[in-house]
Amino acid sequence: MNFTKNIGLFIPCYVDQFYPKVAIATLELLEKLGCQVTYPMGQTCCGQPMANAGYERDTVATTKHFIRIFKDFDYVVAPSGSCVLHVKEHAPVIEGLEKEQSEIHDKIFELTEFMTDILKIENIKGNFPHRVGYHASCHGQRGLRLSASSELHQTPFNKAKQLMVNLEGLEWVELERKDECCGFGGTFAVSEEALSIQMGKDRLADHQAQNVEILTGGDMSCIMHLQGIAKRNGNPIQFKHIAEILNEAIS
């Protein structure tokens, strides 16, 4: 497949620093799918941590910078539902760049929704012989509506599942609580440390009860939190971003 549009790769700051392998997998995956992808070197953070802590007003410069960096791409794609949601819904309105900003809101996509909705991929052919548990990040799920919410009366769907479920050998696990929050929550992880940890432990227990081998998801922030708790407690469960699974499965 050849997709002739120019794609700007938006890599969340903490992924750039802590999880370069996730960014590489995202880039390679999109390239394998025939996309022309550029990573603009000047990009920084989207401002979400500050905004969610109550300092949205201090993210004007960050937001302005983000718009300038990405405004000329046809699409902006990121391996994070949370950061994409922030850009779309919580970044402050920038005077003088209203048009560019609103265009970005329409052309920025989280990786899996870009694959299902823009590239129109029904399912991916490949091989991934593992038992996989999927953690739906809240911002991806209830913010961007990447999968159905258990609270709503709607036809079930899940864009990540759609991409993974037909991989040869992959065992998709249904969880007891399929869309419960993991307790990361940005600054919540430190300001409400006790709750954050308990929520993370409870999520891990659900995956463990289903004998999950690899826990995956679309947001490394949730996974960083869950993995941190798992490692501290000697829990052998493995963690991968969905981009890593899809990229490995195709090769």
């Binding site: 890599i11 992924v15 750039d16 620093q17 802590f18 999880y19 370069p20 392998k21 960014a23 590489i24 880039l27 990573y39 070197m41 992880a189 430190v190 440390e193 940890i197 993370g200 960083m224 939190h225 993995q227 941190g228 708790i229 490692k231 501290r232």
Partner: peptide, 19 residues
Amino acid sequence: WGKQRDLPELPKESFKDWY
């Protein structure tokens, strides 16, 4: 953060450097 959680392992280089 680190009271009850491990920090991620530090990679050799950032994605920016790799790119």
